[in-house]
Amino acid sequence: MVNVALVGLGKMGILHGAIMGALPGARVVAACERNRVVRHFAKSALPNVKLVGEVPELAGLAIDAVYVATLPGSHHPVVRDVYEHGVAEHVFVEKSLAASHAQALEMCRLADSHGGVAAVGFQKRFGGTFAKAKEILEASGLGSVTGFEAYSYSSDFADAGHQDATAASRGGGLRDQGSHVIDLAMWFFGDLEVISPGASPAGVPPDLSLGRVRAEDGVVGTFSVSARMPQYRLPEIGMRITGSKASIDVTDDRIVLNGHVSPRRWHRQDLDDSSVPFLLGDPEYTREGVAFLEAVRNGRAFAGADFHAGARVERVIDGILAAA
């Protein structure tokens, strides 16, 4: 049995906790929440879970793995406490890994010296449509890839003011939802270097982040990220990948392969995407949780993003912000 502790009882901590609680071979035994009021009510909401207010208090509770689901700015000190106080051997950090590339590098150093699984919650890699895109790319289904255009849009802060503090505390749109699409691009094309800010068209939302990047093999791509797109009821990530023979349009929901006699289209349903042992939110969360538990149990590498992958994402985010 894998004993799991949650750090942060916001919506992502609760989601990961529920998935861990529902999967066979894992159980949530403890949680750390600094907000006194939330902790007070969580004690009666989760009677089988030991509640504490500080991470070091989790030490000695026979915890195997910690899920860190606080705001990105606190990930670094939380992870440092987990390792330094011997709270658990294995750590899962909700995206994005840190609040800066420098913090992320320090977290990598801590994880490398400590050992154990060090995972980052870039669950889009476990989504059926993006996995299909990866499969097509690895089979050279597009010929030589020449470029990509990626976006991450949501309406989460469509009604917020220009300097909204809550949006800022989540790392801004780029670090929050945008980190997913940067991770996907690096999963597809390898390491990326920021070469310039993207061109900013007139009338764009005030938080729109644009970046132009180049992969090691010369593939050039762009990112466009905003949390103030009113028409995006749910957060959506998408990418158009162009190759010498064909192109792909992929989102969370569907993937279209263009360039053949007639386009081929797959929806989640075609990819048996909802076949998971427990479904809460999107199925990729559960697949990611299953992969994390497999890595913890078997001492294998995590099939998703590790801290080093998370740090590379932070470097690109810092680069785009610096270039803007």
Binding site: I14, L15, G17, A18, I19, M20, G21, A22, V28, S44, A45, L46, P47, N48, V49, F278, L279, L280, G281
Partner: peptide, 15 residues
């Protein structure tokens, strides 16, 4: 479902 399934996973019988 989001609340109910979450409560199933977290054994929130009281809810």
């Amino acid at each position: 479902e989001v609340v109910g399934d979450m409560a199933l996973g977290l054994d929130m019988e009281w809810l």
